[in-house]
Amino acid sequence: MKKEKLDLEDYRKLLKQYLLTHDETALYQAEQLSKLSVQHNVSPEEIIHVHIEALKELYPNLQKEVSDSLNFLLEAMISYGLALQEYQSLREKQSALESEISVAANMQKTLLQTKKPTIKGLDIGAVSVPANQMNGDYYHFIEGADGTLGIALADVIGKGVPAALAMSMIKYSMDSFPEQLRQPAQILESLNRVVERNVDTSMFITMFYGLYNPVSQTFGFSSAGHEPGFFYFHETESFSEITARGLVLGATSDARYNEEIMTIAEGDAIILLTDGVTECHLGDRFIERDEVLEVIKHYLHLPAQEAVEKVYKHFERLQDFHLRDDFTLIILKKEN
């Protein structure tokens, strides 16, 4: 840090001008000087020292008590000077840390990126936005050689760096699974063992895994304690919750997961989300799931990607552009 010497001559002139004229301009310039001193890491005791020297030059016969009292003030300011220096060094550390996190966040984005596949007869929209820099939500599309589409959606309870680290682990594990491992329940059971072995018990991961089969026009799914999504039935224009029972990942080593299968018809939609969507805060209260559904319903006629983005923008605005939790929403619309 460069230390700029406070110019005694300038200060003396300014002080003299003020003492003679009580001029506001001198005070304004003193303010500028004060700001500049902070910028250049000039400590308060140095300013007081310059003040004393300037005063002595202007009034060579300065009363002893006055000059003594100013020395007293100088001594009393030493700790403020130290605090200022420490504060500045902490600020530098903080900004170093912040840029490190933003590098990590970019790296995470690259690591966890997933390509939205093009599947005939399926319109896919997905949005995932972290509350802070690092995302504790994760979604992934896995296209099988048999034409099926796997959809993974996971949420670490908690957010920030620890959540993001746990997510990377989930992603790597899934990458290492053999191609023929496609069944939602099996996948969750395998991941459960990985999480149980590698993650602290205080960290919970919920996960949903769905498998769309374009031939049989079915959607099979299992859930590890994940926030239930919704089915939209075109025929009745009604919604129903996607319920599947299962423990959160990592709770026990031998968790079993049920697998449900739904038939989906043209015009139906599958809506998957994390609790960052359903637990939007509105002032002091959480919004109700019904309200979430209302908003989704409002935009559901749009192409899937546009719909998820509109829903996200709606809740972002509702929360004053300040997300409390990572927000992930996926909509799959069955076309003909």
């Binding site: 700790s79 403020y80 000077g81 130290l82 605090a83 200022l84 220096q85 420490e86 504060y87 902490l90």
Partner: peptide
């Protein structure tokens, strides 16, 4: 508080 201790 800031400013105290050995770093000071």
């Amino acid at each position: 508080g800031l400013g105290a201790g050995l770093p000071g």
